[in-house]
């Protein structure tokens, strides 16, 4: 089932055209990886899927992005869109508050104030982010006092707390050590049963390990989009081959 359908998407930062005629269909309950050299437009596309680019001055788009058939650049509630399409960033960015409050923050802004309900959401979200056992005895402690790997899983828990349908992840493990990276990768693979996941990564092996489909970007264009297995074993485009084999340029 298709979750996102992106049709002829052009995106401009002022006069600079950052995305050129992007056409992609993102399948539900799959992990889709975006790869490509820095500045190729992969993070830009990711951010345009929950309208984070709205916050950038001079950014405008042409084309369509449909989420479950509905145009997200049409007449819709952007806050609701971002609740449905959550995001996890490259560097863990917990709020300077307790672990509990970090996870409860989203649900509270969406009007949930019952302690019993919030307790339940916090526990479920931390469990789903595979970090409940590590943090359950220090929920009232500052989130800034835990390790980078734990902070990143906390941020995933925070994203899960508002019950999104899609998780956008922008290089979620690039600032983490191998053990934390491995935990997050396992987590991402588990999460795909319930969520649609789109991940930007510079780590080719990570894309191979966890994603179902991979899109290769270059200079704002999608050069190739196929199953991850095909992309990494027998790519059709020379540019893809040159990039993934490290001979780009």
């Amino acid at each position: 089932m298709e979750k996102f359908k992106i049709t002829d998407l052009d995106l401009y930062y002022g006069t600079f055209k950052a995305l050129i005629k992007v056409n992609l269909t993102i399948e539900a309950n799959q992990i889709t990886a975006f790869i490509g050299p820095s500045g190729c437009g992969k993070s830009t596309l990711l951010k345009s899927l929950n309208r984070m680019n709205d916050l950038i001055e001079g950014c405008r788009i042409d084309g369509n992005v449909l989420l479950d058939g509905e145009d997200i650049y049409g007449n819709i509630d952007v806050n609701l869109l971002r609740k449905r399409v959550g995001m996890v960033f490259q560097k863990p960015n917990p709020f300077p508050m307790s672990i509990y409050d970090n996870v409860a923050y989203g649900p509270r802004t969406h009007g949930i104030h019952s302690k019993i309900k919030l307790d339940e959401i916090v526990e479920t979200s931390l469990r789903n982010a595979a970090i409940w056992d590590e943090l359950k005895d220090r929920l009232k402690k500052s989130a800034l006092g835990i390790s980078g790997g734990q902070q990143q899983r906390l941020c995933i828990a925070r994203a899960l707390a508002v019950q999104p349908e899609v998780l956008l992840m922008d290089e979620p493990t690039s600032a983490l050590d191998p053990i934390s990276t491995s935990k997050i990768e396992d987590l991402i693979s588990e999460l795909k049963e319930r969520y649609t996941i789109i991940i930007v990564t510079h780590n080719m092996q990570q894309a191979v390990r966890i994603s179902d489909k991979t899109a290769f970007f270059l200079l704002g264009q999608v050069i190739e989009y196929d199953t991850t297995e095909n992309i990494f074993s027998n790519p059709r485009q020379k540019e893809t081959e040159d990039y993934i084999t490290g001979r780009f340029g």
């Binding site: 080719m204 191979v208 990494f232 074993s233 027998n234 081959e241 993934i244 084999t245």
Partner: peptide, 9 residues
């Protein structure tokens, strides 16, 4: 080298 594509083949 963790080869991929034609190198892996």
């Amino acid at each position: 080298q963790q080869p991929v594509a034609k190198d892996l083949r």
